[in-house]
Amino acid sequence: MSITVRLQSDIFDPGAETNAFLTAHTKAGAAVTFTGLVRSDPTNPITSLTLEHYPPVAQAQLEEFANRAIARFGLLKATVIHRYGKMLPNEPIVQVMTLAPHRNAAFEGAQFIMDFLKTDAPFWKKETSPTGENWVDAKIQDDTTKLRWE
């Protein structure tokens, strides 16, 4: 059982990260990768997204969510990569990967980590568009989604 949490400003290669995660593990039968991307809605396009974070708390919170997912779903391994700083449309922001004996644990573990990451890890998004800058509002829906794990 092992977790990895990486916070970085540099862009990462989602495919290379997935391949590196899929190292041989005798008990593994399922792996799930979730990649979150910078969205630019054509009706309201953005030119860039800037992520601010509170480094020690973000690291500690993500480690806790990954450890809880491992304990709760019996995962073999969990990795979270989250970027901060400026990023462009279509670039990856976050990647969560889970390895488990069976698929349900891998799917649920990845969802569990993402649901808590959205509301309880100190990151804040600011969108830059041709018309100016805007801090993204938190969605109440993200709070209710998380409740399914209680």
Partner: peptide, 26 residues
């Protein structure tokens, strides 16, 4: 001191207190 807490938490000998909006990562 780098742990997320509620407003009614006693400060005691805290060294650092952070204030921030609801989180929007991911």
């Amino acid at each position: 001191d780098e742990t997320i807490v509620e407003h009614d938490t006693p400060i005691k000998n805290a060294k650092t207190i952070a204030f921030f909006p609801p989180m929007t990562g991911g």
